[in-house]
């Protein structure tokens, strides 16, 4: 699972799963560039892994391109893209405003496509590469009060397969990880927004995940690292749940 001499971009790498992924990739020898809207936390993670930070709103094409160009300029190329940047919206389809819908889809779905589109030309110059999209178990099954989020993550899981087809001739693999409930600032905010957070955690996390617990960000990061590395060199178009058995039920 060595990633020595590989260059990786992690979007949304300031915190949570993205930060854990930056650390896991760096541990395997990769040079890591973090793109995020949060400058302070993003720089702190980049410093911790000896990498670079680029301020980027990946829902904008210009920012996505600047991020990939910056990584390639700094480290001489680009091999791995982890599309991890995402937002959650705890609202039903009735409550969601058009503006909210557009924002969730722009970051979670369009942003992943923009980043992939900007990254692949760099990967082709290296003779291949790997893209890992961080979707969600909400992209595989429906959840109440999360319509835009479910739609964006379902779209991302499907975009994974379409891009796997488009990029296979260039030896660029595209796969997705679908985390279950993971201990991150984003998931914590989602729990806090529930009417009864304690009851939600008990029912959702302990009862509906057969492993009976939530994931740590490092556990998701290790799945991402597997798909990013050469151990998975014949794996493309795969959508891999890391959800404690949630979607096996």
């Amino acid at each position: 699972m060595s990633l020595v001499a590989k260059v990786a971009v992690v979007t949304g790498g300031a915190r949570g799963i993205g930060a854990a992924t930056a650390i896991a990739l760096a541990d395997a020898g990769a040079r890591v560039v973090i793109g995020d809207l949060e400058a302070e936390a993003g720089r702190a993670t980049a410093d911790a892994v000896g990498g670079e930070f680029v301020l980027a709103d990946i829902s904008r094409a210009a920012d996505a391109e600047a991020l990939m160009n910056a990584a390639a300029d700094r480290f001489g190329g680009l091999d791995v893209l982890v599309n991890n940047a995402g937002v959650v919206l705890a609202k039903s389809a009735l409550e969601t405003s058009e503006e909210e819908w557009d924002r969730v889809l722009a970051i979670n779905l369009k942003g992943a496509w923009l980043c992939a589109r900007a990254a692949v030309p760099h990967m082709i110059r290296r003779g291949g590469g790997a893209i890992v999209n961080v979707a969600s178990n909400a992209g595989l099954v429906g959840f109440p009060n999360a319509a835009a989020y479910c739609a964006s993550k379902g779209g991302l899981a499907h975009l994974t397969k379409a891009m796997a087809l488009d990029f296979a001739p260039f030896k660029v693999r595209v796969n997705a990880v679908c985390p279950g409930h993971t201990r991150t600032p984003m998931a914590d905010s989602f729990v806090a927004s529930q009417a009864d957070p304690e009851a939600f955690l008990d029912d959702f996390v302990r009862l509906q995940h057969p492993l009976g617990r939530m994931a740590e960000p490092e556990e998701i990061a290790h799945c991402i690292r597997f798909l990013a590395g050469d151990d998975a060199s014949f794996v493309t178009g795969a959508v891999l749940p890391a959800d404690g058995g949630f979607t096996a039920r």
Partner: peptide
Amino acid sequence: SSFVTGHSLVVDGGWTC
């Protein structure tokens, strides 16, 4: 894969996508 269970991981070079 400590949080992965109940999954069937395709290793098919993209056949099924």
